[in-house]
Design a protein around this nucleic acid. Structure first.
Lengths: 359, 359
DNA sequence: CTTAAGTCCTGCAACGTTGTAAAGTCCTGC
DNA sequence: GCAGGACTTTACAACGTTGCAGGACTTAAG
């Protein structure tokens, strides 16, 4: 029902191919002809059919963004930036929620949606490091802590890459901040304020997945740098990444009778839950316990107290990710060697560590 | 490069059409043949090509969700629910950010993406009421306050629907809560607590758009019901829907020297910004000023104080929306009369109005 | 004037899928 | 034994697009 090139061509009195040439900006079209075709296009409200283009062998103009959960503010903000960056470049974004399941993440990069999308931006959390570098189906850009060289957990049988995917190889890019360094910075910030009993919230409760091992490593490195030995009593694993899990972690610490004067949470969301739990127990932040998070979601700028955190410059990460993907999709994907981009991060010290500034 | 039906057929020793019939569960295929084809499918890792299906005249299996901003937690949560509801039903979700621009919203419903998507779930905020009922291109479900019968602003020239879109008509469904009733309920909650000088934050600053007129209407109705006259000094318009705009609105109220003992914010996000601004000015919530929001984003359950609000049951709204759209897409869209579904809402009274419960 | 190069335009084929029509096979009932 | 039907399979066309090959014409160079 919607008009196709056929209709445009008929109206302009040219061949279908000429109409196509006008649409695609082919050079050798007489100005007069071009104008006539353009007029037909405008009059009919012609829009190219991406399905046909895609079928013909071209791209669909759609890229996927795979995040664990849209409900998580960090990923929502990231998604917003990705969509906004992609739009002016002519890309549409399709959102996938992985739920942090490694299988799902692997399937997506292996090309589960290969027919619908040209490429994918993935925030892996369930996958072991190194699993994605070699065999996969479609151009992909990885976001986040995921780092070369950190050993992953042992492989399970279901982790095997399906045969069809193994046949195809391709490059994988990576964008992210130096999470270990950032985590160390956050921890040192607490140390600098005189805190010595620093709890860490956010290590994974599951032994088979290892989300954010860099953050744990950075925390330990900073403690070591201050001559402190990490106290196992102060490290709390979580079963999820929501506010409630941060709150539960505080309950756990208190139930353990742990003595702590600061908490480093691996995400802002955990920190916000933790702060709430501390408040409910009458623990003053930062008077009794300083709290610092990680990711700088907007919520932390308006919480009471405002949340100190690491700002990973999410907008820039999104821009770089989209640009890198676009580069692979327009150029020769295989010709570009896998890239590893480090984005600068900042420490944002706010009320949850510094206290309320004097008015 | 990925295998097509042709490859499957060749491997199974049948015609392409028979392979297609197996894929589509056509009844009259001999069990033995079916098994052979299925084996070929599994061996090759065949996945149907949606572009070809779409081109052939079928659906793409993709629906769009158009929200003003993914960065806004309410819409992020909604998007999460929509994606999660759509997935098990076999639909993929493509996210559009409208930025609240009416033109963008209209274009989308008019079929701007008609080739890529089968239908659309739209959260209109920039559009005048009634603009979407009549002329449009693709099956759509509208979400939110948008209500029949509330007069919209005068039309501007650029609001004209393009010719191509005018040719096509179709039904529009609507899902939402009774916002006016909910707003009245929120206001009455404040009145019941003895508050009499209730400010309202969230009316639109732009005269040409009128987001959420129902909330303003409900607020006024509740005041009237209590024999109070709305004080213009207590109504603050906002230029956006973020936390910062809520904070700015409080600054505005204080700058006006307005005397108020409660604030009804048209969204939770505005309320959270407002609470922060009140805190910074040393105003106690709810001691000096009670605050209530609207939409029940998770953030409000962990803020300090926790935020009283209206819970619109977003998950259910998402489910209904996806189901209604799916119904239109699988059945005969035109045969179903436009539907208007009201979802039940709840008033959630929390610390920002009740104060901290005794421990 | 011939040849070559350049410009502008067109027809054909193919991408992967499925609806239509129809052909072939086998069985049932008279 | 044969018509009629049910079952199983197939060939073909079409969806809208673009790469390729090439035709017709113009201009420039030799």
């Amino acid at each position: 029902m919607p008009p196709g090139l056929k209709d445009v061509a008929a109206r302009a009195g040219v061949s279908i191919k000429t109409a196509s040439n006008v649409v695609n900006g082919y050079v050798h079209v007489a100005p007069e002809t071009r104008a006539r075709v353009q007029a037909a296009i405008d009059a009919l409200g012609y829009v190219p059919n991406p399905a046909a283009r895609r079928l013909r062998g071209g791209g669909s103009g759609v890229i996927a963004l795979a995040v664990p959960e849209l409900r998580s503010p960090y990923f929502a903000e990231l998604a917003g930036h990705v969509v906004e960056t992609a739009a002016p470049r002519g890309w549409t974004v399709l959102i996938e929620q992985t739920g942090g399941r490694g299988n799902r993440e692997r399937d997506l990069v292996a090309g589960l949606r290969r027919h619908a999308i040209d490429g994918i931006v993935l925030c892996p959390v369930g996958l072991a490091t190194g699993e994605l570098t070699r065999r996969h189906g479609i151009p992909a850009v990885l976001l986040g802590d995921w780092t070369r060289g950190v050993p992953g957990p042992p492989r399970r049988p279901e982790d095997q890459v399906p045969v069809a995917a193994q046949a195809r190889h391709g490059p994988v890019d990576h964008v992210g901040i130096d999470s270990a360094a950032a985590a160390a910075e956050a921890t040192r910030h607490l140390l600098r304020l005189g805190r010595r009993r620093i709890a860490a919230i956010g290590a994974s409760g599951r032994p088979d997945a290892m989300p954010r091992p860099q953050r744990l490593a950075g925390y330990r490195a900073a403690l070591a740098g201050a001559g402190l030995v990490p106290d196992p009593l102060l490290a709390v694993a979580v079963r999820g990444q929501g506010r409630s899990h941060g709150a539960a972690a505080i309950e756990e610490l208190l139930a353990r009778g742990a003595d702590f004067d600061a908490v480093f949470c691996f995400t802002d969301l955990l920190a916000l839950g933790a702060m709430r739990a501390l408040y409910e127990h009458g623990v003053d932040v930062p008077g009794d316990v300083a709290v610092i998070g990680f990711s700088n979601i907007e919520e932390g700028r308006y919480s009471t107290p405002t949340l100190s955190t690491i700002d990973p410059d999410t907008k820039r990460i999104a821009e770089i990710a989209v640009d890198m993907l676009a580069e692979r999709l327009t150029g020769n994907a295989a010709a570009i060697a896998p890239r590893e981009i480090r984005v600068e991060h900042r420490l944002l010290a706010r009320e949850s560590t510094l206290g309320r500034p004097q008015l």
